[in-house]
């Protein structure tokens, strides 16, 4: 288990010594109990740093902002950014390294292990505690959480309020880090793709009905895209409106705006949008499930990405976010890749 004091000390060491320019971590929210992302520029601010099962955000997202900010600066501060990452998030760092979006020197990774559990699912917590006011949730040594409410502390079995993705997690500890807190914990879930099975067993008609109901809800707010650390393109191929025009863009090209997807949130367009997103995340998504958490319409978006993660593993034996030196899933092949589907 990570001792918060150790994490604070490690963070303080690098911030005080000027090794990093600032640290991206978590702090208590102004309202509620779910931790929020926080940027620590001064060592004394670090007293507010927290690490608990409510630190659901994938902070790797903020490395996108950091990169864009730096690109706009004339003489950018070249020191790395300190960042607190969980096991899943660390694989996102690896994908960004693999895609040369960031350099290893750009980040100082404070790795935190989730131990035997992981992150809570806010919806499950709310349901479990029906209206009680929660002030704090803590990790335990065993597979449970300690939840502090106005009525005192209770120990809750992890399974009851745990995020589904955490039950399928195989990297409870960061795979890349400069310091690792909480030790290296190995997790071998019985069925890392178990949550997909119910969907997969449905008939084509039932599958369609399910997704039609879900994706028709989409209002195309693009929260899923905005929160995704892998969606770092300046312009998204599904957008036709914000294709930037630069001084050197030829007139011909300005006129060539492809409408792969209409803006209006109709069922067909929502399908195309979400499928393009899933395909573009194949071999890149680390199942941080931030898209699903951010979705205001409660669409189970994680399924789409998880399905392709499963197929990448099954068909191509490809694991996402472990090796930064290998070519990406779709920029590589094996002679023995399956082709039984080809006539």
């Amino acid at each position: 288990m990570v001792a918060l004091e150790d994490l604070k000390q490690e963070a303080k060491n690098v911030l005080e010594g000027g090794t990093v320019k600032y640290i991206i971590g978590y702090k208590k929210p102004a309202v509620g109990f779910m931790a929020v992302p926080a940027f620590f520029h001064k060592p004394e601010d670090l007293d507010a740093l927290v690490w608990d099962p409510t630190c659901v955000h994938n902070l790797v997202l903020f490395l996108k902002d950091e990169k864009k900010k730096k690109l706009g600066q004339k003489e950018p501060d070249e020191r790395p950014v300190g960042i607190v990452v969980k096991g899943c998030d660390s694989r996102a760092v690896n994908v960004l390294l693999q895609e040369n979006y960031i350099d290893r020197e750009n980040v100082y990774i404070l790795g935190v292990s989730c131990g035997k559990t992981g992150m809570v699912d806010l919806k499950k917590v709310r349901k479990y505690f029906k209206g009680k006011i929660i002030s704090q949730i803590d990790f335990n040594e065993n597979e449970s959480f300690t939840v502090t409410t106005t009525e005192g502390k209770v120990e809750v079995p992890a399974a009851d309020i745990f995020a589904v993705r955490c039950t399928e997690c195989i990297t409870a500890s960061p795979v890349i880090h400069d310091v690792l807190l909480g030790g290296d914990s190995v997790r071998t879930p019985e069925n890392p793709f178990g949550s997909l099975e119910e969907m997969e067993s449905k008939s084509q008609g039932q599958k369609w009905d399910f997704w039609q109901e879900q994706l028709t809800k989409c209002i195309r707010c693009y929260a899923c895209r905005s929160i995704c650390p892998m969606c770092y393109c300046d312009e998204c191929v599904v957008d036709t409106i914000n294709f930037a025009v630069y001084p050197d863009t030829p007139a011909e090209e300005k006129a060539q705006k492809i409408k792969w997807v209409e803006k209006s949130p109709t069922t067909s367009e929502n399908f195309i949008y979400h499928m393009v997103r899933a395909i573009h995340l194949a071999g890149r998504c680390v199942d941080c499930a931030e898209c699903e958490r951010a979705c205001p319409m409660d669409i189970p978006l994680r399924f789409l990405n998880k399905k392709l993660e499963k197929e990448s593993k099954k068909l191509f034996d490809y694991d996402v976010g472990y090796d930064t030196e290998i070519p990406s899933l779709i920029s590589s092949f094996r002679d023995e890749d399956p082709e039984d589907f080809i006539r």
Binding site: M199, E200, Q204, G205, Q206, K207, W208, D209, F210, W211, Q212, F271, M275, A278, I279, A282, F303, L304, K307, L308, E311, S312, L315, F316, L329, I330, S332, F333, D337, P338, E339, F341
Partner: peptide, 14 residues
Amino acid sequence: RRIALLKELLNFIG
């Protein structure tokens, strides 16, 4: 490879 993935996805959404 690309088409195998797309085929699985199209199948998955019904």
